[in-house]
Structures are given as structure tokens and as C-alpha cells.
Design a protein around this nucleic acid. Structure first.
Length: 855
RNA sequence: GCCCGCUUGGUGAAACUGGUAGACACAAGGGACUUAAAAUCCCUUGGCCGGCAACGGCCGUGCCGGUUCAAGUCCGGCAGCGGGCACCA
């Protein structure tokens, strides 16, 4: 019957449109949003945790008087839909919309306080048409460009991967070894905002420090200089980037990346170098190889001239530890002050000349053995830099480079521009046309959206848009001649970079409606997994700025508050043959050991890990909701672990949560059998009673109001597990005191308990509220207020220590004078015994907390 | 390798800015009710020691050391686990 009750209240909320938000300038707004799901087929426990956390916040803020926006949508473009199309012969759109229908019903069964009227799906033309329009504006604003780029090509998916999507040299989805190809690609100019994105991190006070740090490292600012080393006997130079221009006089070689244009040029006439470059490309990919990789180089026949000394020539190597993607793809090596350069120099017999002398060391006698010196000191053997400390020498060296035209000061960022082209069907089409005569021509806005064709096939690899008989053949909007439509689609991170803004005005005929955006944005609280700590959040931060640039938004940071939840974990099981087993395939035998359900065979229990299909340690949320109800699932999600930490899903824990729902039910039903309570009204008589005369009533009232205050603070601070513990405590206190408390107080307590439960177990709370005789919906009720006078006790229990060891506790009036407390402590017999007659040297009194007698 | 974080009973965890360590829950054990089981209710539950008992003592928050009247909390060192980045010039 609880499942019927849950459905009944879900229907009641929907009918009353409780959670549909509208702009209301008279009320403070609160925009809470969880990361929208990819419609993969069914929801998993990670979703349940994510949306439960967000829903507690949403319902709580609503009860606190905020005008809450709590929307939901679907990150609906992406690879799995195409994979399904190939495997199951179902159209990606059909597959996606079917999954959305299933998952929407699943989410609705959780009783989330979502505004479904604002639902969006990124694969819908009414969503992506606006993305295309913004792209065109950004293109015009210079935030987008196209360039021929060496890209990571996934040979299995036949698509380009972002650097971020290449893990250990393999595609992050397919695991295929990534190849390099040159293709013309679309980029967002995120690096133009590198410094702004970095600096603004400091202002994100309600973000986890960890996430801010990860973004900071990802942006990777380093200050240094660009320097040119002229090639001996050639007119051109090698450009390098260094953070240590002070050590230029300690240089002993220059090294190029294997993909450096000069290296490739030299390789043409040098089979050994060609082989070496091939080797670099192979080995520089796997993580284990990197770990143990020996620093290797190939000496070229070239030499460079030192920028500060025309007579000083240095050898040029191609080295396996220099990356083309970072800096200029070339370095100068200073073995004395860089460990990696030192290893390299020792291997190839290159000079090691110390130029930074540690404080106190003798410049003439200072030698480097196996360990490079990277600390501070005074410059030596360095001509005009001699005697300077490191920061001064860096500055001086850069100024000299600039004076002689051999380089300049430079800040380098690790962050690279965002490659958004994907050679895929199931994504937002990039709205441009390629014309032989006019070049790249934007699709006129009046022609938007550029819709995906529906008649596509997936019977061969590559991009179906490319294969489509007619879709790409268009006439040029500018000259009218034959032209070709762009067949690349956007990286799905583009879709998710602005959906938070679209929720504000999901049906508007422009990307965002200004008044709605002004009212609702930025998002007050964003809740999601830490796996999106870098890419999604950084792209959204960039996109917000890009939208500001094209006049759509008036602020920079999309998410004022961020909460990253932990993962949902479960033990792993294997049978005797080492095959993974689902939790439901395992059962407890009579002797307490775990055995397989199938044949009673032995089960090996592995450590608890994130729920994953590959290890089969998954529990289906629908089955839990079916068996125990949504409230039980929600309550368990909140109860044991702090939300930021990983949560261990256990059957026993779920049953504990289930038992508590039953206990609450019995508690209210039992109380209502008492006619006095049934007729009592809270608030009316409670304050009039002579509560002092009724110890239990007074104690129960105090416990109630302390719980209200505590739970309020705990929810405010996302300490849901503590809020849960407080509610258990109050339930225990009710069982203990209610029999001897007055009917009015019992009613007040039960009603408070039910109201505190509402954000976490909304259905049960609604049902109990109704049973307690209320006509309206609890969802429309304000949050209970704690009476401050009842939260603070008149008397306090104070611990008494002797020499720092607890010896007794005494009860004293709150805020009693220091002397009184001291006297009471000294008068205590346990204290006297512990003193053993020794004279008191000192008494430390911490008011209302502790007294320490030092003897 | 660099940068972060964590380490508390059998388990998940509490303990506010240094002030009664283990709230709350799970598990376990004992008891009541029951023909029986389930459900429910009551009791015990960090370790060791003393006492018939009320109770009292000693030890205890990964390890070593320090600061302090007082340290899970602060400082220094070490170990283990987890995360992020990674030949980053």
C-alpha cells in the first residue's frame, strides 16, 4: 500500500503543480540543479543519490520560503545512441526518446520535486537550433575558428577525440590505440579566457577547494620566456619556452619533440632519425611505459648558437621527453638545475655546468653529481647575471633577450583550445556551408535549425551525414553556387555547457530570455559527480563568458555553489570460477557464508567498489523502489555516509531504512488512537500549559525544538547524515517520553517530526501529515521554526577534569559565575578523591563546557 | 615524480572555531512475546583490570615526537590508502 500512497502523493503534487516555478520578483529565488542524465536506458544508483541530494535541498529551500527552480532534462546526444543503432538496428532518435520515456518514469517514481514543465532534451531541434545560433554569433565574435590540426583519430569509432578523451594513448570509450591525422577542425577559443577562468576560481567560494585546484592545474599557468636559438649555418631559429631563463648559461643542448617540424624535416634524409621518431610515437603513449621510460635522444647534425654568446654552439637532439603540444615543442637543457636534463646529459656525455650556487656553497667548488640543484641561490658562471638571485636573474635574462630581439617574456598555459568537431551523426550539426567560391559561409539564421536528416543508415563505419545521398549538397547562401554542408557535429560537451541557462526559459524563441535569465541565474546550487570536475565545469564557465560576449548573459560564473557527491559502491562477488556475480545471485547460507543462489557454490567476496556493469556489483533502483518504496531508498541514500564521501550500498542498511519508515507509521498511528491527541491542536494550548509541572512534556518540547534547530542547520550545510541521526534521536526520545507527556506536546512533536522528514521522505511525510488531520499538502507548508528559548537549556552538564583526566560531571545553571562553578567542582567527591589531598594549583573554567583542576 | 585529500569500535560514521571520543545507524549476542517463525519490544556491545553491587581504575582516534591545564582536532617527521596531473621545459 505504500507504493499506492507514493503514487497518490506524486499525482497530488503534479495536479497542484507544486513544483512549477515562475518568475516572482517579490520572493527570493533559489535555483538548484543536478547534472542532467545521459539517457542510457535506465537510471542507476548514482542517479538516485544525485537526485535525492538535490531534491532535499530543493524541498528544504521551498519550505524556507524561496521561489525554487528545480528543473530536469536530458543530455541526449552522443555515441551510445549510434552504437545502439548499429547493434540493434534502431534509429538513434527512437532509442534515445524511448530511453528518456523509461527514465522519466523512473525519476518520477522517486517523488522528486522537479518542474517537469521545463524539461529539455539536447537532441531536440528546439534546443539545438539555439546552440547553432549562438555558434554563429560566436563565430562572428571571433570565439570560434577552424584550423587544420593534427587530431587524435579513433580507428574504431572513426572519429576525432579531444586530447581530454585520450587516456594513455587510447580512446576513452573504445580503448583503441589512437592514431594521428590531419583534419580541418572547429575550435572554441577557450584559451583566450585562460587567465580569466583561472583568476575567477578564487571567487567560487562555494565550490569544493579540490575542484578549484583541479581546474587551476588543468589551466596550468606558467611564467617564463620564449627564446630563439639561431641555427648554425641556416637562416632560421629554434624557438623554445623556458621557466628558467636564469639558467641559460648552464645550457648544454637543445631538444626537439619528435613531432617538431624541424625534426620531421631532418628525418627525411635520416633513416635512423625516422626510426627514432617512430619509436617515440609508439612508446610515448602507455602510462606504464612513461613511468619507467628511459630518457632517450637522437643527435641531429644541426647545431644552434647560444642567444647570449655568438661563439657558443650547442648540439640539437630529438628527444622522447619533449612534447609538441606543450610550449614551443622544443627546450633547452640545463643539466645542473633540472633532473630530467641531468639524466639526459649523463647518458650522452654532455657538460654539466652549475650556474646557481646554493647559499653558503663555494662557487668554485660546487659540483653536481646525481641530483640536480633546483633551489634558490646566487648566479655564477653567467656573465651579466653573476651575483643575482634566481628571481632577479630570471627578470634580467628576459630583459636581455628582449633587448637583443632573441625572445620575450611569456606566460604559457597548459590549457588548449577546445576542439568541438565530431565526425558523428547523433550530435548538433555545425551550421556552416563550404563553398568553393566563397569559402566558409554561415548558414543564415533564418534557415536554422539545420536539422539532422532522419533517413540515415549505420551499415558502414564513418559519419552517416557524410554518406547521406542529399543532405550535404546545398547551394551557397552567398553566391548560390553548388556547395557542401558541414558534416561535423558538436562535441556533446557543447550541449551541456549552456543547458542551465536554457532551463530559465525553455520554450523561448531565443537561447535565453533576458528577464528570466536575470531573475534565475546564476545557479545557486549545482550537484553532481566529481568526474565532471574539470571538463564539463570548465567548458560551462567558458561558455557563460562566451554567451556574455554575444550579449545573452550578464554574468561570468554559471554555478555559484557546487557540491560534488561521492560514488555509490557495493561489494563485488565472484563464483568458484572467477566469474562476477550480481548481488542478487548471492545469498547467505545457514552457516552465514555467502553462496551462489544457482547451485550453492562458494562465493568470493571482493572489496567494495563503484557500482559498475563490468563487475556486476549493481543494484537496480527500480527494484528497490518496487520492494521498499522511494522513501526508503532516499532515506538510505542520506543516512549513513556524508554526501561527499563514497556510499556503501548494503541490503542490511536498506532494511534498516525500511524498518524506520514502518516505525514512523506506527508511531503516528498509535498516537492517533489517543483521542486527546487526535483533538489537540498544536500551538494553541502548548504555551498555556503549566509545563514546569510536567517534566516529560517540557523535556519533549525541548528535544523537539533542538531537533528542529539542528536539522535545519545540518541541511543548510549539506550534513544530511547528521540530520538523519537527529531525527532518529527525536524518534527515540518520543518513544521514551511520549507516554507521560501531554497530548498537545505530543502532537506538536509528531507534527514537527513529520515536517522535518518532508525533504527526505516526502511521500511518507505527506501521508502522515494527512493522517494527522491536515487538509492541505505538506509540500506547501513552511519549514518549522525552532523556539530559541527551548533550544538552550537552563542547566548544563559540565565535565570536570583533574590534571586533564575526566573525573566527574556536574550539573550547573547555564552561564553560572566562574566562582560558583569552581566551588562546585572542588566540592565533588570524585574530584576530591582524584586530588588525593594535593593542593590545587590552578582551576581552568571554560563556561558551560569543562572545568580542569590542576594539582 | 609533483599536487591534493583521507586514516576514529566488528561495520558506516558522530564529535561546532583545541574542552566529557564513539551520538545515530548497521551487525552481533542475550532476553520478552509466540505452538513456532516473522515482526515488535527490552538489555548488552572499544579493549583490559578490580568489585556481590552501585561503581572505580588503566589503555585507546594509523605510527613516532612536540606544543598546551587540556590534542581525534594544532605543529614536525614517518607509514598506509585514495584522488588529480604527469617526460609540463
Amino acid at each position: 500500500n505504500f507504493r499506492e500512497a507514493e503514487r497518490k502523493w506524486q499525482a497530488a503534487w503534479a495536479e497542484r503543480r507544486c513544483f512549477e516555478a515562475a518568475v516572482d520578483d517579490t520572493r527570493p529565488k533559489y535555483y538548484v540543479m543536478e547534472m542532467f542524465p545521459y539517457p542510457s536506458g535506465r537510471i542507476h544508483m548514482g542517479h538516485v543519490r544525485n537526485y535525492t541530494l538535490g531534491d532535499v535541498i530543493a524541498r528544504f529551500k521551498r519550505a524556507r520560503g524561496f521561489n525554487v527552480l528545480h528543473p530536469m532534462g536530458w543530455d541526449a546526444f552522443g555515441l551510445p545512441a549510434e552504437n545502439a543503432a548499429m547493434e540493434k538496428k534502431v534509429h538513434p532518435a527512437t532509442w534515445t526518446y524511448d530511453n528518456i520515456a523509461t527514465m522519466r518514469a523512473q525519476l518520477q517514481s522517486m517523488g522528486l520535486s522537479l518542474d517537469w514543465s521545463r524539461e529539455i532534451a539536447t537532441c531536440h531541434p528546439e534546443y539545438y537550433r539555439h546552440e547553432q545560433a549562438m555558434f554563429l554569433d560566436m563565430l562572428e565574435a571571433g570565439l570560434v575558428y577552424r584550423k587544420e590540426a593534427s587530431v587524435n583519430w579513433d580507428p574504431v569509432d572513426q572519429t576525432v577525440l579531444a586530447n581530454e578523451q585520450v587516456i594513455d594513448g587510447r580512446g576513452w570509450r573504445t580503448g583503441a590505440v589512437v592514431e594521428r591525422r590531419k583534419l580541418a577542425q572547429w575550435f572554441f577559443r577557450i584559451t583566450a579566457y585562460a587567465e580569466e577562468l583561472r583568476l575567477a576560481l578564487e571567487g567560487l567560494e562555494r565550490w569544493p577547494a579540490k575542484v578549484r585546484l583541479m581546474q587551476e592545474n588543468w589551466i596550468g599557468r606558467s611564467e617564463g620566456a620564449r627564446a630563439l636559438f639561431p641555427l648554425a649555418g641556416r637562416p632560421d631559429s629554434i624557438e623554445i619556452f623556458t621557466t628558467r631563463p636564469d639558467t641559460l648559461f648552464g645550457a648544454s643542448f637543445v631538444a626537439l619533440a619528435a613531432d617538431h617540424p624541424l625534426a620531421l624535416e631532418l628525418a627525411a634524409g635520416d633513416p635512423a632519425l625516422t626510426a627514432f621518431i617512430e619509436e617515440c610515437r609508439k612508446t610515448a603513449t602507455s602510462a606504464e611505459a612513461l613511468e619507467t621510460l628511459e630518457k632517450k635522444g637522437h643527435r641531429t647534425k644541426l647545431e644552434v648558437v647560444h642567444p647570449f654568446d655568438p661563439n657558443w654552439k650547442l648540439p640539437v637532439y630529438v628527444a622522447n621527453f619533449v612534447l609538441m603540444e606543450y610550449g614551443a615543442g622544443a627546450i633547452f637543457g640545463c643539466p645542473a638545475h633540472d633532473q630530467r636534463d641531468l639524466d639526459f646529459a649523463r647518458k650522452y656525455g654532455l657538460p654539466v655546468k652549475p650556474v646557481v650556487i646554493p647559499p653558503g656553497a663555494d662557487p668554485a667548488g660546487f659540483r653536481i653529481d646525481d641530483v640536480a640543484y633546483v633551489g634558490d641561490g646566487r648566479l655564477a658562471n653567467s656573465a651579466f647575471l653573476d651575483g643575482l638571485d634566481v628571481p632577479a636573474a630570471i627578470d634580467r635574462a628576459i630583459r636581455r633577450l628582449e633587448e637583443i630581439g632573441a625572445g620575450e617574456r611569456m606566460v604559457h598555459y597548459r590549457l588548449r583550445d577546445w576542439l568541438v568537431s565530431r565526425q558523428r551523426y547523433w550530435g548538433c550539426p555545425i551550421p556552416v556551408i563550404h563553398c568553393e567560391a566563397c569559402g566558409i559561409v554561415p548558414v543564415p539564421k533564418s534557415d536554422l535549425p539545420v536539422r539532422l536528416p532522419e533517413d540515415v543508415t549505420f551499415d558502414r563505419p564513418g559519419n552517416p551525414l557524410e554518406h547521406h545521398p542529399s543532405w550535404k549538397h546545398v547551394s551557397c547562401p552567398r553566391c548560390g553556387g553548388a556547395a557542401r554542408r558541414e558534416t561535423d557535429t558538436f562535441d556533446t560537451f557543447v550541449d551541456s555547457s549552456w543547458y542551465f541557462a536554457r532551463y530559465c526559459s525553455p520554450r523561448a524563441d531565443k537561447p535565453v530570455e533576458a528577464a528570466a535569465a536575470r531573475y534565475w541565474l546564476p545557479v545557486d546550487q549545482y550537484v553532481g559527480g566529481v568526474e565532471h570536475a574539470i571538463l564539463h565545469l570548465l567548458y560551462s564557465r567558458f561558455f557563460t563568458r562566451a554567451m556574455r560576449r554575444i550579449g545573452l548573459l550578464e554574468f561570468d560564473e554559471p554555478f555559484a555553489g557546487l557540491f560534488t557527491q561521492g560514488m555509490v559502491c557495493h561489494e563485488t562477488y565472484r563464483d568458484g570460477e572467477g566469474n562476477w556475480l550480481l548481488p542478487e545471485e548471492v545469498t547467505k547460507a545457514a552457516d552465514g557464508r555467502l553462496v551462489t543462489v544457482a547451485d550453492g557454490g562458494p562465493v568470493e567476496v571482493g572489496r567494495s567498489e563503484k557500482m559498475s556493469k563490468s563487475k556486476k556489483n549493481v543494484v537496480d533502483p527500480s527494484e528497490i523502489i518496487q520492494t521498499y518504496g522511494a522513501d526508503t531508498a532516499r532515506w538510505f541514500m542520506l543516512s549513513d555516509s556524508p554526501p561527499e564521501r563514497d556510499l556503501e550500498w548494503t541490503e542490511a542498511g536498506v532494511e534498516g531504512a525500511w524498518r524506520f519508515t514502518q516505525r514512523l507509521w506506527r508511531m503516528v498511528e498509535g498516537a492517533l488512537e489517543d483521542l486527546g491527541l487526535r483533538n489537540a491542536r498544536p500551538g494553541e494550548s502548548v504555551n498555556g500549559e503549566n509545563l514546569e509541572a510536567e517534566g516529560a512534556s517540557m523535556k519533549l518540547r525541548r528535544a523537539t525544538h533542538k531537533t528542529i534547530a539542528g536539522v535545519t542547520e545540518d541541511i543548510e550545510r549539506f550534513r544530511f547524515n547528521r540530520a538523519v541521526a537527529r531525527i532518529y534521536e527525536l524518534a527515540n526520545t518520543i518513544d521514551e517520553l511520549a507516554p507521560s507527556a501531554s497530548a498537545h506536546v505530543r502532537r506538536e512533536t509528531l507534527e514537527s517530526l513529520v515536517r522535518l522528514l518532508a525533504p527526505m521522505m516526502p511521500h511518507l511525510a505527506e501521508e502522515l501529515w494527512h493522517r494527522l488531520g491536515h487538509g492541505g499538502l505538506l509540500a506547501d507548508q513552511p519549514w518549522p521554526e525552532a523556539d530559541p528559548a527551548l533550544v538552550i537549556d537552563d542547566s548544563v552538564t559540565i565535565a570536570v577534569q583533574v590534571n586533564g583526566k575526566l573525573r566527574s560531571t556536574i550539573s550547573l545553571p547555564r552561564d553560572c559565575p566562574r566562582e560558583v562553578a569552581e566551588q562546585a567542582a572542588l566540592a565533588d567527591e570524585n574530584v576530591a578523591r582524584a586530588r588525593a589531598g594535593k593542593p590545587v594549583r590552578k582551576v581552568i573554567v571554560v563556561p558551560n563546557r569543562i572545568i580542569n583542576v590542576v594539582v
